[in-house]
C-alpha cells in the first residue's frame, strides 16, 4: 500500500486541523464579534448538544427534508419514466421542468409561506417543488439511455414485464436516480434552511436566524458547523456506502 493510502485518514485530520489553526490565528487579529476563536465556538457547540437543543431542532429539519424528498422522489419517478417513454408527455411537460429548474429556492420558499403560512407543510412543499424537476430530468436521461438491446434479450427469453423492469430497467436507472437524488438532497438542505429562516419556529434555519437577530456570530457559526457535521455524517456513513454497494459492478477507471 502506498504511503498516501496508508495515511489517508491522517491526511484528512491534518487538513481539518490546518483550517482550525488558520481560523484560530485569524481570530487573534479580528474582533470576536466578527470572528470568534474556534475554542469559543466549540464550547457553544458542546452546550447546544448537551442541552438537547441540537437534537430537537435537527430532528425538525431532517423530518421536513425526508418528507419533502420522499414526495419529490415518488413524483419524479412517475413523471420521469412517463416523459422517457412517451414523446407526447415529454413535449407537454418539458417547459414546466425547465421553468421549474430556473425558479430560485428563495422564490419558492416565499411563495410557499405566503400560500400555506408558517407551517411544516410550507417547508415540505418548497422542497418537493424545487427538487422534483431536477430528479425528473435525471430519470428522463436515464430512460433515454436505456439499452434497448438488453430489453430485447429479456423478451427473447420470455421474461415477464415485471422481471424486465426489476432486472433490466431499474438497475440501469439507478445511477441516474442516485445522482439526481444527490443534487436534490443538497438543494433540499439549502431550501429547508431558507424556509425555516423566513419564519418557522423550529429547525436549524430558525436557530441560525435567531442568533443572526442577536448578532451572535459564535452561535451562528456553531449551528452552521453542527449542520455541516450532520451533512458529512449522512454523506460518508449512509449515502456513500449505499452508492458503493449498488455500483460495485462497474469497472473503476484508473488513469
Amino acid at each position: 500500500m502506498s504511503f498516501y493510502k496508508q495515511n489517508k485518514f491522517f491526511i484528512i485530520i491534518l487538513s481539518i486541523s490546518s483550517i482550525i489553526i488558520l481560523w484560530w490565528i485569524l481570530s487573534l487579529f479580528f474582533n470576536p464579534t466578527y470572528l470568534p476563536s474556534p475554542l469559543i465556538v466549540f464550547i457553544d457547540i458542546c452546550k447546544i448538544i448537551i442541552s438537547g437543543e441540537f437534537f430537537k431542532h435537527m430532528l425538525s429539519t431532517i423530518i421536513r427534508i425526508i418528507i419533502g424528498f420522499g414526495i419529490a422522489m415518488i413524483l419524479s419517478l412517475f413523471i420521469g419514466v412517463a416523459m422517457g417513454k412517451n414523446k407526447k408527455v415529454e413535449d407537454f411537460l418539458k417547459i414546466e421542468i425547465l421553468v421549474g429548474l430556473t425558479i430560485p429556492a428563495l422564490a419558492w420558499s416565499i411563495i410557499s409561506i405566503m400560500w400555506f403560512g408558517l407551517k411544516n407543510f410550507s417547508a415540505v412543499f418548497a422542497i418537493s417543488v424545487l427538487i422534483t424537476p431536477m430528479i425528473v430530468l435525471n430519470i428522463y436521461h436515464g430512460m433515454k439511455s436505456l439499452d434497448n438491446s438488453l430489453i430485447e434479450m429479456g423478451k427473447v427469453y420470455n421474461a415477464s414485464k415485471y422481471l424486465i423492469l426489476k432486472k433490466i430497467i431499474i438497475p440501469q436507472l439507478l445511477p441516474y436516480i442516485f445522482s439526481g437524488s444527490r443534487y436534490g438532497l443538497a438543494l433540499a438542505w439549502k431550501t429547508v434552511v431558507i424556509v425555516e429562516m423566513l419564519g418557522l419556529t423550529s429547525g436549524i434555519g430558525y436557530k441560525i436566524a435567531f442568533w443572526f437577530g442577536l448578532f451572535s456570530m459564535e452561535n451562528v457559526l456553531a449551528w452552521t458547523l453542527l449542520f455541516t457535521g450532520i451533512m458529512f455524517i449522512i454523506e460518508y456513513l449512509i449515502l456513500s456506502p449505499i452508492e458503493k454497494k449498488v455500483m460495485d459492478w462497474r469497472q473503476s477507471i484508473s488513469f
Binding site: L150, I168, W249
Partner: peptide
C-alpha cells in the same frame, strides 16, 4: 455482443434465463 447484464454476476446472468422461464 453477448448482451449480459453488467450488474449481475456471471452466475446470476445464467440464472436470468431460467427465472424468465
Amino acid at each position: 455482443n453477448s448482451r449480459l447484464l453488467n450488474w449481475l454476476t456471471i452466475k446470476e446472468n445464467v440464472l436470468f434465463s431460467l427465472q424468465a422461464s
